[in-house]
Simulated assay, not measured.
Amino acid sequence: MADKLIVLITGGNTGIGYESVKALYASPQAHIILMGSRSLEKAHIAISTLKSEVTDSKSEVIPLQIDLEDDTSIDNVYKEVESKYGRVDALVNNAGGSFDSVIASKPGAAGIREGWNHTYDLNVTSTQVFTTKFAPLLVASSHPRLLFVTSGLSSLATAGTFTNKVISGPPPKGWPKPAALSMLAYRSSKSALNMLMIDWQRQLENDDAKVFCISPGFLATNLGGMGAQFLKSRGAGDPSQGGNLIRDVVQGLRDEDAGKVVNKDGVQPW
């Protein structure tokens, strides 16, 4: 076990999380990959699919039940990882969600509060709780890496002018504005996640940790319930691009970009 990187990935049974597990599992470098999933049943199904897609590997994949919004679940999985492994070499905070559709479906204050509160509770607060809990196992590693999966939509530098086939440009003059999917709650929660990463870089500087935000790009996942096919029809790329990027960061290929938001092309502007 000493020569294998121990990598814990939340939300590892689907989307970019699954592709990250797959990229690491297919790597010639050996890993112990801890696949976090809210459902152990779904994790076992995902592992079965993984082993049918990658038939030869030096690594092993272990399912873990992790619900970021349940502190008992976090406490239990911490005890399990601590007792079995005693450390985590790379912690990949991938699990998250978009609930902007709730805002659109419930006009007024109730929809805004529900959508925004759930988005921040999962993407920011729960991620902070989980990372804080696992910090002792990270600093027990000789070369710890801490990753937060953010978004290209989190960039303040490009937010004012950014449009794509999902997010539209400025609406017509006047009020009320026509309904449009701006994903504002999701976008701002990911900007907050960037701030989280900066502070963790500060906290862990003297522990020789490398801390990153990962901006995987516009990829065809089921984020927000829009469906992979819907996003693909609007130009989204294959989720494997995000998985390969996370693999490279875990394996130390982007260490010069620690403390920044990294994407496949370099560093994303704040």
Rank of each mutant, 00 (worst) to 15 (best):
A90H: 08
V149I: 11
G217A: 11
D238T: 02
Q229R: 13
G227L: 06
L50F: 13
D207N: 14
L64I: 13
P28L: 12
V77P: 00
S98D: 11
L253W: 13
N117T: 00
L5R: 12
P178G: 09
A110L: 11
H143I: 06
A26G: 04
S182V: 14
K4G: 06
K4M: 08
N263F: 07
H31S: 07
T125A: 14
R247D: 04
A110W: 00
T163F: 02
T161F: 03
T49C: 03
I214M: 05
F212N: 10
N194E: 12
N244K: 15
V261P: 10
L196N: 02
L122I: 06
A140M: 14
E205W: 01
D70A: 02
A220N: 05
P107F: 12
I103T: 08
K84Y: 03
S101V: 03
N164G: 00
L122S: 03
S20H: 01
A192Q: 10
K232V: 01
C213R: 07
N123A: 01
G259P: 07
V261S: 05
S73Q: 05
A209Q: 09
F212C: 12
D238A: 04
S182D: 15
F212K: 01
T132L: 11
P216T: 05
A236G: 08
F134R: 01
L156P: 05
D248N: 07
A179I: 14
P176Y: 04
E53W: 13
V139G: 01
T127L: 09
V54Y: 02
G36Q: 01
S105N: 11
S151T: 02
G217R: 14
Y25I: 07
H31A: 06
R145M: 02
N123D: 05
I45W: 10
Q201S: 14
A30F: 07
Y25F: 13
N164T: 10
L219R: 07
V81E: 08
P216R: 08
N117Y: 09
K4Y: 06
T14Q: 11
D67Q: 10
S126H: 02
R234M: 03
T127E: 03
G252C: 07
G152L: 10
I246H: 13
V21M: 13
D238C: 07
R145W: 10
L138Q: 11
K177Y: 06
F218P: 00
V267T: 02
K232E: 09
T161Y: 09
V129M: 10
T49A: 04
S188D: 13
A209N: 02
Y25T: 00
L8R: 10
G235L: 11
T55V: 15
N93F: 14
R187L: 09
D67G: 08
E60V: 15
E256R: 07
A109V: 06
G160A: 07
D238L: 05
R38F: 06
G17E: 13
E41A: 11
E53M: 09
S151K: 00
L50A: 15
S191R: 14
A236W: 03
S59N: 04
